[in-house]
Amino acid sequence: MHNIENPKKYPIGILSPKGLSAVSIVQPLSNAKSGLFIMEIWKDIKGFEGYYQISNLGRVKSLFRIVSHKLKGKKTISEIILKSCISSPGYYALGLRKNCKVKCARIHRLVALYFIPNPENKPEVNHKNGIKTDNRVENLEWCTRKENIIHAIETGLLPNRGSGNHNAKLCERDVREIRKSKLTRKQLATKYHVSIYTIKDAIKYYTWKHI
């Protein structure tokens, strides 16, 4: 938190200090009269420069740009903060679109990749307070699989596996069929009445690792 005596000196969208991407000042809605502001830092997402940015608060925005359009010739896309959806394990995720291709990305991993050093090259990202939708940089840390499991057990987050979990949207038979299927993820999502992210997680063994 930064106590800024004269917020007029720091308008939304100012340029950041050297070495950082664009910066904006965001005022907490819960304490608007306190004079406290949060410094929100935005960084380009690799492979999507000029298209999307991720912030240290766990927000993703689509940038202003002009793109080709089959009917209109050119189309203007306004800058906007994107809404994320919750994938089957409970994490915020969204699709990054470029050149008619979509890449699924989890918000907490984007924040960790661009704002948290990982000198030991740990593979997973942990939410310190156990809240999977709290993707502020101070709530995230790199960890090993073992460290992640231990933390989940200590915080009571580790659920029963498979269809024994009351939050499960698929069963073991569904997952086996999905992994063998030649249908697209979109077609599978429609067939099993789940999100594309649920299908992706099952295929990639992010979920249902025991089968």
Rank of each mutant, 00 (worst) to 15 (best):
residue 15 L to D: 15
residue 17 P to Y: 14
residue 17 P to I: 14
residue 20 L to Y: 14
residue 21 S to N: 13
residue 21 S to P: 11
residue 22 A to W: 10
residue 23 V to C: 13
residue 24 S to L: 09
residue 25 I to A: 10
residue 26 V to W: 11
residue 27 Q to E: 14
residue 27 Q to G: 09
residue 28 P to H: 00
residue 28 P to N: 00
residue 29 L to E: 00
residue 30 S to Q: 11
residue 30 S to I: 12
residue 32 A to K: 15
residue 34 S to C: 08
residue 35 G to E: 08
residue 35 G to I: 06
residue 36 L to I: 12
residue 37 F to W: 13
residue 40 E to W: 07
residue 41 I to D: 03
residue 43 K to E: 15
residue 45 I to E: 04
residue 45 I to G: 01
residue 46 K to H: 13
residue 47 G to K: 05
residue 47 G to Q: 08
residue 48 F to K: 02
residue 48 F to E: 06
residue 49 E to L: 00
residue 49 E to Y: 05
residue 51 Y to W: 15
residue 51 Y to E: 12
residue 52 Y to A: 01
residue 54 I to N: 03
residue 55 S to I: 07
residue 55 S to G: 07
residue 55 S to N: 04
residue 60 V to C: 04
residue 60 V to R: 02
residue 64 F to D: 09
residue 65 R to S: 01
residue 66 I to Q: 09
residue 68 S to K: 15
residue 70 K to Q: 08
residue 70 K to A: 12
residue 71 L to G: 04
residue 73 G to N: 12
residue 73 G to L: 13
residue 75 K to V: 13
residue 75 K to I: 10
residue 75 K to D: 07
residue 76 T to E: 15
residue 77 I to T: 09
residue 78 S to H: 15
residue 78 S to E: 15
residue 79 E to S: 14
residue 80 I to C: 14
residue 82 L to Y: 00
residue 83 K to H: 12
residue 84 S to A: 14
residue 85 C to I: 14
residue 86 I to P: 02
residue 88 S to T: 01
residue 89 P to W: 08
residue 90 G to C: 11
residue 91 Y to P: 02
residue 91 Y to V: 07
residue 91 Y to G: 03
residue 92 Y to E: 11
residue 92 Y to F: 14
residue 93 A to E: 10
residue 95 G to C: 11
residue 96 L to A: 13
residue 97 R to G: 01
residue 99 N to M: 12
residue 100 C to V: 09
residue 100 C to L: 09
residue 101 K to C: 13
residue 103 K to R: 15
residue 106 R to E: 10
residue 108 H to P: 03
residue 110 L to Y: 05
residue 110 L to E: 03
residue 111 V to F: 10
residue 112 A to P: 05
residue 112 A to I: 04
residue 115 F to V: 01
residue 115 F to Q: 02
residue 116 I to S: 06
residue 116 I to W: 04
residue 116 I to N: 05
residue 117 P to I: 05
residue 118 N to F: 08
residue 118 N to K: 02
residue 121 N to E: 07
residue 121 N to K: 15
residue 122 K to A: 02
residue 122 K to C: 02
residue 125 V to L: 06
residue 125 V to G: 03
residue 126 N to T: 11
residue 127 H to K: 02
residue 129 N to D: 14
residue 131 I to V: 15
residue 131 I to L: 10
residue 135 N to V: 03
residue 135 N to E: 04
residue 136 R to A: 00
residue 137 V to H: 07
residue 137 V to F: 08
residue 138 E to C: 12
residue 139 N to C: 02
residue 139 N to D: 06
residue 141 E to T: 05
residue 142 W to N: 03
residue 143 C to M: 06
residue 144 T to R: 00
residue 144 T to K: 00
residue 144 T to M: 03
residue 144 T to F: 04
residue 148 N to V: 03
residue 148 N to L: 07
residue 149 I to F: 07
residue 149 I to Q: 07
residue 150 I to V: 13
residue 150 I to K: 13
residue 151 H to F: 06
residue 151 H to S: 06
residue 151 H to M: 06
residue 153 I to K: 15
residue 153 I to R: 14
residue 153 I to Y: 13
residue 154 E to F: 01
